[in-house]
Design a binder for these strands. Structure first.
Length: 226
DNA sequence: AACCCTATTCCCATCGAAGG
DNA sequence: CCTTCGATGGGAATAGGGTT
């Protein structure tokens, strides 16, 4: 968590120094890399449990899609030409929850549909079904915890969305991704920037979306020891 | 009328592949 | 080797509709 907030701050400073031109807090994100700390940690845990580091890729991770030619994943594990796992990491910070929630959900659903269809069409040759993971980090703040009104102009929305905050919407989304078998596991974390250095720098709102469960399932699949 | 929510579009640093 | 091109990704400006 500390790395995440540090990198955000650094990106802002870097761009100011260059005479930055991004709008608002965009400077903190256009440089990417925010999730590098999580990437490192996940790799660390996989190698510690017996996965050869040479089989874990964070660059050149493009996998074929069905609806689009390729999609680069954050982490891909390939052993002897067999696709073992692919992981996406996402984060969202700031106030524009409505539009960005919409964007992230379309993206995650689309990515899953794209790769599973490609798999069905034999894109991964003799590979058995890969393990897909989705990790989402949301800023913990009043705006992400406040209820969001739902518009029900023609038909009622599903009950679980009524009075749900964006944090709740993301939690439901992650859970549904797993239960609909779009991803094998999902991890949902919320973090308060003010507590970036404290012992309680993050919260895992749901047991079924915990980091622990996510990582142990990953390790089990890639064949490492637990 | 003020406010809130959603959809669309744009932003640009970065990286890697392709082209010269 | 250098330049160009294209894709990526988290966020916000904007517009438009609805709600209170």
């Amino acid at each position: 968590m500390k790395t995440f907030w540090q990198i955000r701050d650094r990106q802002i400073k870097d761009q100011e120094r260059r005479g930055g031109s991004d709008q608002g807090a965009r400077s903190a994100v256009t440089g990417g890399k925010q999730m590098d700390g999580f990437v490192r940690k996940i790799i660390e845990l996989m190698t510690a449990s017996g996965v050869d580091e040479g089989n874990i890729y964070t660059k050149k991770t493009h996998l074929p899609g069905f609806f689009r030619p390729v999609k680069g994943w954050d982490i891909v594990v390939v052993v002897d030409g067999v696709l073992m796992a692919a992981i996406e990491l996402k984060s969202q910070v700031g106030l524009s929850f409505g539009n960005n929630f919409n964007n992230r959900t379309e993206e995650a659903m689309g990515t899953a549909l794209d790769i599973w269809t490609a798999y069905r069409e034999g894109a991964f040759c003799t590979s058995p079904a890969p393990w897909l993971g989705y990790l989402f980090l949301l800023e913990d703040c009043p705006e992400s915890r406040s209820p969001v009104r739902t518009q029900e102009t023609h038909f009622p929305v599903f009950e679980e969305f009524r009075g749900a905050s964006y944090a709740k919407r993301y939690e439901l989304f992650c859970r549904k991704l797993v239960r609909e078998r779009q991803y094998n596991a999902a991890c949902f974390i919320i973090a308060d920037r003010e507590k970036s250095n404290s012992f309680e720098s993050y919260i895992e709102p749901a047991d079924d979306l915990s980091a622990d469960l996510f990582l142990s399932q990953l390790n089990r699949h890639v064949g490492g020891r637990e």
